[in-house]
Amino acid sequence: MPQIEVKNVGFQYAKSEERDSALKRISFSIEKGEFVSLVGKNGCGKSTLAKLLNGLFEPSEGTVLVTGVDTSNEDTIFEVRSKAGMVFQNPDNQMVATIVEDDVAFGPENLGVEPSEIVKRVDDSLAAVGMTEYKTATASRLSGGQKQRIAIAGVLAMKPEILILDEATSMLDPDGREDVMSVVKKMNEDGITVINITHDMSEVALSQRVIALKEGEIIFDGTPKALFDSTEILKRANLDLPPVGKLKRTLVESGIKIEGDTLDEDELAEEIWQSLK
């Protein structure tokens, strides 16, 4: 059984001005341990979809099953939310407590976890995101990247199986972005399913699978490589190549022959080296 099943899901907003972020009967499933990127132009329905995956929104039609549990069922909604944790875009708007450790403890406290167990989970989660030394720091004084790592720790403390990132790196500087993504990659290696909504094509290149949305419909579902190989789909989804791909395109267009189709910097250098040797 897939970990997440989205079956014929449609969603309409009540307010007309948000109509363009609606979803039109889409279906897909995600297996345990996958690292999926969700891409598309602003307003294509990505964030709506993310909120459907952990029951923050209820589908207007169709069903969403997370580990077999229907997200529309109010009795089990908190089971879904604790299993599919979510990190949002603005680091400042998802912290409830002034002090780091209190914020991380918020999720397990809500779930009624034993205090001694919460203490353990907070310590473990902070260690996992490399923020142990900031345990008693004032959250508002941290950098954006640090705040997002705290937000991830807050999700980890609920012992989730799925981590959903809703443009979690878009407000960060490159340094903070790198820190957050390396934490996310580690989570994925530890077996947590990752669904990353992003505009950053280098983040897409890190994932195993990309789902591209346009006007509420899935227009692509496959590997990053297949996406980046298809100029037509990239164009339709208003996407571009990751920086390495763009650089290579410029080189090729100006007449330098490069074999291979890597999106990795070291490998690109190697390919150039091979072609000019």
Binding site: K246, L247, T250, L251, S254, G255, I256, A269, E270, I272, W273, L276
Partner: peptide
Amino acid sequence: KGMSFSDVCVTADQLAHELKRI
């Protein structure tokens, strides 16, 4: 890797130019 450039490249076009020269 041992390639020698005559100038620092900061954009893709400059890199392309240098590589063609090489």
